[in-house]
Structure formats: structure tokens, C-alpha cells
Design a protein around this nucleic acid. Structure first.
Length: 500
RNA sequence: GCCGCCUUAGCUCAGUUGGUUAGAGCGCUAGAUUGUGGAUCUAGAGGUCCCUGGUUCGAGACCAGGAGGUGGUACCA
């Protein structure tokens, strides 16, 4: 018997599309959340938190005949067999919250929220199955001023995060203009019968930034063959219809007013188009008066946004610069946030139309962009000072030193391992400790401690080649009376802070 | 989902027309140095050559299927 019993050992591995986040990034995320939140607070939004799970039907995923909810969401069945799903954005949970508490909420209701969202999709570069969104919404007013404020908020947030005006752009379009273009092309935007066609057209227009006008033209027409993979079926429009949409895309001008003039010429005689234009004219006036010109907020007919629940203005925040990744490949960050007016979302629950508008920022993507630009957040935390344990039986004494340092607001720790001094030095080095505190028998006998500045020591080591000198000269190391431990360490830290 | 590419040490990779004992750099551990992180030198540990089957006297290499990764495309509420 008792041969080798095979013990099951799970392989330590992350689920695909998920990732662990280390201390540096985590601290940066926290700093970003704080900055974004400050802008939102200044605009008068209030924080709220909703849970990660919602009932699947509340998320707007209808269960078809299959026994599992749509792909794209992570779902599981509750003990009473009800399907629950991890939220895939912050908007649907908000709509649920508003519908559930409709009586008690003062309208217009303005709130912001942030947290992880999950999407069960194929991960790609910079695309994960869990990522963080920061959201602001105004619920309960159809006033276009609410949409305008959301755009202003988005622009101000980008700048608060450290992007300059030339590095981002807030694009604004209006679904009503798209409806006007449909109308012009003889496609009834209100007819459910051509919903599929409308979606195909919208998707084609949305590819403008990816494939350009010729690509969109193919997609609106017969279809587009791509080099690798399959053939994308087109919308099968005729050339007159296609021309309408291409003209529509081409009406983007540098100034908001000229864009509106151009669009007016194209769609002014359609009902939906005229409505959309009127809304954008109002936005332009509000923006102009608030000091937001077209270098920050632009009217861009090519912005579509995939969601069919949008009913009016739609927005997108774009990063306009390019960067290179570690392999030297060109990286475009592109869209880092989006939103729009969704007047029918709450009505799904209550039957009562509740106008709403909102915006989501992709925090993780913004963070990746900031990192690429080398804009780490300034308040980098220093690693702890390490107090070496030269004699195990003196640990209580070392522990007190550590506690004195902590009481002075200095991150500090006693070496908790059981290895010798050399290993302890290596530990402190790897840890990135600014300095170590050394007290062996010699120092203790005269009531002193040695403080070694590790960064300075490394610098001095450049000129030392043989190890005897390196060890014996004890570079960047000095002795102080034990009573002056805290102030001496503080002095070293102050010097390091001033250098960086 | 569809198409292409890739998979050899912890990491980055080399490995000839199929040939016997599979390598390098970096990293890691130890020593030179029993109280000093660096540099240098020396030694060492570390491998299911992704898996399964096939071809062959012989497969890390060739063939088929599968898995995983990756790039593009589709979808993205």
C-alpha cells in the first residue's frame, strides 16, 4: 500500500483576462480616484455604492430560450434559481436603484459612483475582464443643461488627472441627428422592423476612426473583407443612401458652429435632425458661456456609441496622443470614456419615462495612459525604514525603536526573518528601504545606533570596486546617540524627499 | 465565433537536412567576505522541450488532433 499518494495540487494561475494589481499601481489608482471624485463633488454630485451583483433581468439582459443568460456577462444562479450577474457597467444598476427608490429620491438626482465592472469577453491588450469605471449621472431631467454639465465635468476631470487640453478631446454627437440621417435615407428610425438594419448602419459609422471613410463606405454597402478572418456583411445600402451618411460623417468641422451649419444644411428638413440640432445649439451656448471652447469639447458626427438605449446627446472622451509600448509598437489609447442621454432606461422598471444622462470613465485605461506618459502620481510612498536584528535577544529593544519611528510618522519595521546581517541588508535593499538602523553589541555598549542611507551608499559604490573597501569604509553610514534616532532618520528621509 | 502566428530552465531566447549527454544570457542560491545591500570572481540548483497519438532504427525538430498564449477581425449591453 502506502506508496506515493498523489496529492492534488492546483496550478497557481490567474483566470484569463484578470490581473493582480501591485502596490505602485494601486496607490496610483487611489490617487486618481481621489482627483476624479474631487471634480465630481465640486459639480455637486453625491457618492453612492451599489453591489457587484444584480438580478440578470435588471441589467437589461433578457433570458432567451436558452437556460443561461447571454454571453458577455458573468452569471450564476441564486439558491432560488434566479439568475444573478456581475454588473457590466454602472448605468443599469443606477437605473435599478432609481426605480426602486423612486418616491424618496429628490429629482433631478445627481450621483457619482466607481468600482469594478466585469465583462465576459475575449481579453485583449489593455482590455481585461474586470476593470474600473467611474460614473456620473443626472436622473430626472430632460434639460439639455444636464448633458452639457456632464461634458464639462468630463473635460475638467481629464485636466484634473493631468492631461493637457491638446491631449484629449470630448466628442459630442446626438442620436437625433443620426435619426435625421436615417430619415433622409428613407429608413424610418421608429420602425422596429428595421432595427437590425439601423444597428448595422450605426456600427458601420462607428468604425470611422478605425477604417476611415472608405471602410465605412464598404460597410454601408456590400460589406468588407478583412485580411484575416471572415467577411463582414454590409448594410446593403444604395449609393444615394451611402452618400447621405458619408456627408454626415464629413460634416465635422473645427468649430462647433460650422459643424452645426453643415449639419443643418444636410438634415435641417428632417424632424429628428432639427430637434438634434436645436439641442446642440443650446449646448454650444451653454458651453461657450462657461468657457469651454472647441479645443476641449467638439461636435463630432462620427461618434455613435454602441448602446441602443441612448436617446439624445452622446459623448465620448478620447485621448488624442499616440505612444509606443515596450516593444516599440504604436499604441492608441483612443476612447477612455463615454456616455449619453438614456431617457428610457428607468422606464423599463416603472413604466414611467424618466429622462437621464450620464458618463463613464474607464479608470484603468486612463491610468495606463498616464503611466505611458510617465506621469506617475507625485506622492510616491517611501518604503519602510528597516531596523536590523543584530541580536535576537534584543528584539524587544529593536521593537521599541521601530515604535518610536512609527510614532513620529515614519514607516518602519523590524526585520522579522531569522537570517544573518548580510541577508538582512539584502532584504532592505530589495525592499527599497531608504535606510537601515543598525545596533550591534558595539553600538549598544556606547548607547549609539548606526544609520545607513542605502541610496547614498549605492551611489558611493560606483567608485568602489573591491569589496574589502566597500565593506570596511561603510559608505553613507553614520553613528548617532540612540536618543537621536528619530531625528537622524527623519533627516535622511527629508534629504531623500528633497532630491526627488 | 472566424483567420494567422507562437509554445524549449523562474524570465528572454538559441537549438543545423531528424542523430546519441538539450544550451546561453539574465535571475536565483551559496562561497570568496563568521557585522554590511553594490561591483567582481567561483561553484551550484533549476527541464514532462505544452499534451495525446502517429511516422521513423531514432522526434525538441516531421504529421494529425487537442490545450494554452498571442495578433487581427467579429461582438461589446
Amino acid at each position: 500500500m502506502a506508496k506515493k499518494i498523489k496529492k492534488f495540487r492546483p496550478k497557481a494561475r490567474l483566470p484569463k483576462g484578470f490581473r493582480d494589481i501591485g502596490p505602485v499601481e494601486l496607490r496610483q489608482t487611489q490617487a486618481m480616484l481621489k482627483k476624479i471624485g474631487a471634480v465630481y463633488e465640486a459639480y455637486g454630485f453625491e457618492p453612492i455604492e451599489t453591489p457587484a451583483f444584480e438580478y440578470t433581468d435588471a441589467l437589461g439582459k433578457f433570458l432567451p430560450d436558452t437556460d443561461r443568460p447571454n454571453e458577455g456577462v458573468f452569471s450564476l444562479q441564486d439558491e432560488d434559481d434566479q439568475w444573478m450577474s456581475l454588473r457590466y457597467d454602472m448605468t443599469a444598476p443606477l437605473a435599478r436603484h432609481v426605480a426602486e427608490n423612486y418616491q424618496d429620491i429628490a429629482k433631478p438626482y445627481r450621483r457619482y459612483t466607481w468600482g469594478p465592472v466585469w465583462r465576459n469577453e475575449k481579453p485583449g491588450p489593455g482590455r481585461f475582464r474586470q476593470f474600473m469605471q467611474f460614473d456620473a449621472d443626472t436622473v430626472g431631467t430632460a434639460n439639455i443643461a444636464a448633458d452639457t454639465e456632464i461634458c464639462m465635468l468630463a473635460a475638467d476631470t481629464m485636466e484634473a488627472l493631468g492631461f493637457s487640453t491638446s491631449e484629449y478631446k470630448i466628442h459630442v454627437n446626438n442620436r437625433k441627428l443620426l435619426d435625421g440621417a436615417l430619415e433622409k435615407a428613407g429608413i424610418d428610425p421608429a420602425d422596429d422592423g428595421n432595427l437590425g438594419l439601423r444597428q448595422t448602419i450605426f456600427r458601420s459609422l462607428d468604425k470611422y476612426d478605425k477604417f476611415g471613410l472608405p471602410g465605412v463606405e464598404e460597410l454601408l454597402g456590400p460589406g468588407r473583407a478583412d485580411e484575416s478572418g471572415d467577411y463582414t456583411k454590409g448594410a446593403q445600402l444604395n449609393s444615394e443612401q451611402i452618400k447621405i451618411f458619408l456627408d454626415f460623417l464629413g460634416s465635422a468641422k473645427d468649430s462647433r458652429v460650422s459643424t452645426l451649419d453643415q449639419l443643418s444644411e444636410l438634415l435641417g428638413d428632417t424632424k429628428a435632425g432639427e430637434e438634434g440640432l436645436a439641442e446642440l445649439r443650446e449646448m454650444d451656448a451653454l458651453l461657450r458661456s462657461a468657457g469651454f471652447d472647441e479645443t476641449r469639447i467638439q461636435f463630432s458626427p462620427f461618434i455613435v456609441r454602441g448602446l441602443d438605449y441612448y436617446t439624445g446627446p452622446v459623448f465620448e472622451a478620447e485621448l488624442t496622443f499616440e505612444a509606443r509600448n515596450d516593444d516599440g509598437e504604436l499604441v492608441r489609447f483612443g476612447s477612455v470614456g463615454g456616455g449619453g442621454r438614456y431617457d428610457d432606461l428607468v422606464a423599463r422598471f416603472t413604466g414611467q419615462r424618466v429622462p437621464a444622462t450620464g458618463f463613464s470613465l474607464g479608470v484603468s485605461r486612463l491610468q495606463a495612459a498616464l503611466t505611458h506618459l510617465g506621469r506617475k502620481d507625485g506622492d510616491e510612498v517611501l518604503a519602510p525604514v528597516v531596523v536590523l536584528v543584530m541580536d535576537r535577544e534584543e528584539q524587544p529593544h529593536y521593537q521599541r525603536m521601530v515604535q518610536d519611528l512609527r510614532a513620529a510618522g515614519i514607516r518602519a519595521e523590524m526585520y522579522l526573518g531569522t537570517s544573518g546581517m548580510k541577508a538582512q541588508m539584502k532584504y532592505a535593499d530589495k525592499r527599497g528601504a531608504p535606510c537601515v538602523v543598525i545596533q550591534g553589541g558595539d553600538e549598544r555598549a556606547v548607547g549609539e545606533v548606526q544609520i545607513k542611507d542605502l541610496a547614498e551608499g549605492l551611489r558611493l559604490s560606483k567608485d568602489i570596486e573591491d569589496s574589502d573597501t566597500w565593506r570596511e569604509s561603510r559608505p553613507a553610514q553614520f553613528s548617532v546617540p540612540e536618543a537621536e534616532l528619530v531625528s537622524a532618520v527623519q533627516g535622511v528621509l527629508d534629504r531623500i524627499r528633497n532630491e526627488t
